[in-house]
């Protein structure tokens, strides 16, 4: 870029900035009826106008700084929160980020018309370059909103993933003082953490002296999962509860031996039923066969 064109562009961004500030009210009145604002602020048009107003101010400040192609321009940072809220609201309503971006693009015609009328009335200078500057600025805004909408989508996914984790790990009270978590599916680090926390909370809530971790539904156990199991057992012990790991299938038992993991200090039982029987026995309960009146096998 030559010095000449840089200077021209500097003038142009200043003109756009002045234009945005001078025509703030007209732009706001036009934008408030556009889909982007209308669909978010369904209740009050004043709110829509207020939101449009801060967006116009943000654009004016970006133009004033001359960084019209820069998503990181300070002017944008100021409206990030507002746009995030708007994008999140549209995303909840089922709008795809591309649709939201189109709605931003739809803001451009009305403001361009206004600019052309505005400039035509002034010193008769060619409006072309300034329209280009405004178009670039609106293009950057579109990208910025798109980025914001995408990250709002990621946020929703994160939250849903967390909710899924919580429902996927129910802690069940089996008996007075005995709780169990039947684990189903792959255990990763995040899920193991949730399992550990909910099991330990249940130990407190239920005054449980025994906690059973049933891994019948866990397809594979690698060293990381085994480590998490050991940590859960150790934490439960610190709280004064005994942890029993049940449902170790032969294939998993083999993997554990192969990996050289020492589950030595962990109490293990073949099935959830065996684990419950062990816990009941430890508690002093005796299971009696009604027909014979004799204590059944443990």
């Amino acid at each position: 870029m030559t010095d000449q064109s840089t200077a021209n562009r500097g003038t142009s961004t200043r003109i756009i900035s002045d234009f945005l500030q001078r025509r703030r009210e007209q732009i706001v009145q036009r934008w408030a009826d556009e889909a982007l604002f209308r669909t978010v602020f369904t209740v009050s048009r004043d709110e829509a106008a207020e939101a449009a107003g801060s967006l116009v101010e943000a654009l004016a400040s970006v133009a004033a700084s001359g960084r019209i192609e820069d998503l990181r321009a300070p002017g944008f940072t100021g409206v990030r929160e507002q746009l995030t809220r708007m994008a999140a609201s549209r995303a909840r309503g089922g709008a795809a980020p591309s649709q939201i971006a189109d709605e931003v693009a739809a803001l451009r015609p009305s403001i361009t018309d206004l600019l052309i009328t505005d400039l035509a009335g002034s010193d008769g200078e060619a409006s072309g370059p300034h329209v280009v500057t405004l178009t670039v600025l609106m293009g950057t805004l579109r990208l910025f909103v798109m980025e914001t909408a995408l990250s709002a989508g990621e946020e929703i996914i994160d939250r849903q993933r967390l909710q899924l984790l919580e429902v996927a790990t129910p802690v069940i009270k089996l008996w007075s003082g005995i709780v169990a978590v039947p684990l189903i599916g792959t255990l990763d680090s995040a899920r193991s953490q949730v399992v550990m926390e909910s099991l330990l909370e249940a130990i407190v809530d239920q005054q449980a002296k025994f906690a059973i971790l049933d891994i019948t539904g866990v397809p594979t156990v690698d060293s990381l999962v085994a480590q998490h199991l050991m940590k859960t057992v150790a934490a439960a012990r610190l709280m004064g509860a005994e942890c029993i790991v049940s449902g170790i299938r032969p294939a998993i038992a083999q993997t554990i031996v192969h990996l050289g993991i020492d589950l030595g200090s962990v109490i293990t039982r073949a099935s959830l039923a065996d684990a419950l029987a062990y816990a009941l026995h430890q508690e002093g309960a005796v299971i009696v066969d009604r027909a014979t009146g004799a204590g059944g096998p443990r």
Binding site: M196, E197, V204, K231, A234, A235, A236, L238, M239, G240
Partner: peptide, 20 residues
């Protein structure tokens, strides 16, 4: 006998490597 340790404290001690 150490009694009544809170879950968050127990988890932290285990991560710290302190299983007492």
């Amino acid at each position: 006998v150490v009694a009544g340790m809170r879950p968050a404290v127990a988890i932290t001690l285990v991560e710290l490597g302190l299983t007492l």
